[in-house]
Amino acid sequence: MVRIIGFKRREKEDGTPFFTLELQGGVEMVKSLETGQFYATAKKANVTSTFDEATCKALIGSEMPGKIVKKVVEPYSYVVKETGEELVLNHRWIFVPEGDEETIQDEAIDQLMANPSSFSRNGQQELAEQAI
């Protein structure tokens, strides 16, 4: 399940306004690579909508069946607001409705097939594992 936690007003190229809904998944515990300590976090994603502002406000707190998953995309620049640091990312977090899991599986296979370093080139398993 994901929860609608907010919304944002955006504009199309022609200046027409529309709203996106901000979704958040459940709490997850992640182990820090630097400290080895666990911390709580939640994945977030934005989805476009056809709703007006009043409807978006009314939807905050609503839950929907589905999950937020990582999708590999073409690299893009992202600036961390707090520090001004510019990062190059190659993924986005997207919402996948419940029952659409085959889409996730198909994308995972496509990503694996698109990365030839995932496979051994000499038939030795240990080298294939190192490439991952």
Score class of each variant (00 low, 15 high):
L23R: 15
V79I: 13
I104F: 13
C56N: 03
F95I: 04
G84P: 02
E86S: 13
P97C: 11
A40T: 07
E34I: 13
G84A: 00
F18T: 12
R10M: 12
N115I: 05
C56T: 14
E101F: 10
T55M: 03
Q24S: 13
E34H: 02
E28W: 04
E107S: 00
Q24N: 06
Q125I: 15
A40E: 14
V2A: 14
Q105G: 02
K12M: 06
T20Y: 05
A108D: 03
E34G: 01
Y76A: 00
F119E: 04
E86Q: 08
K70N: 03
R3E: 15
I60H: 01
A54I: 11
L33P: 04
I60G: 03
E101N: 01
Q130R: 09
S49Q: 15
T41E: 02
F95T: 04
M1P: 01
G25T: 01
A128M: 06
R10Q: 15
E28N: 01
E102S: 12
P116W: 02
E74Q: 08
E34C: 02
A108G: 08
A42R: 15
K31L: 08
N46S: 14
Q105I: 15
I5W: 14
E82Q: 09
T55R: 07
M113A: 14
M1Y: 04
V79K: 15
T16E: 15
S117Y: 06
T35N: 09
K8D: 13
E13Q: 13
D52Y: 05
E28R: 04
V80I: 06
L112G: 00
M64D: 00
G84N: 04
G36R: 07
L59V: 11
F119K: 07
T48I: 07
L21S: 12
M113K: 04
A58T: 09
P17E: 05
E126H: 10
N90S: 07
I68T: 13
A58M: 13
E53G: 12
R92G: 03
V96T: 06
V80F: 06
Y78P: 00
I109T: 08
F51T: 03
F119C: 02
E63H: 09
I60Q: 08
R3K: 15
Q111V: 05
W93M: 13
T48W: 13
F95P: 00
T20C: 15
E34K: 10
V2G: 15
F19H: 15
G99E: 09
G123E: 08
P17V: 06
V88W: 00
H91F: 14
A58W: 01
E53H: 09
R92S: 07
K31W: 03
L89E: 02
K71C: 01
G61V: 14
E82D: 11
E34V: 10
K81I: 00
F119R: 12
Q111R: 07
V80K: 02
S49W: 05
C56V: 06
N115E: 12
E82W: 06
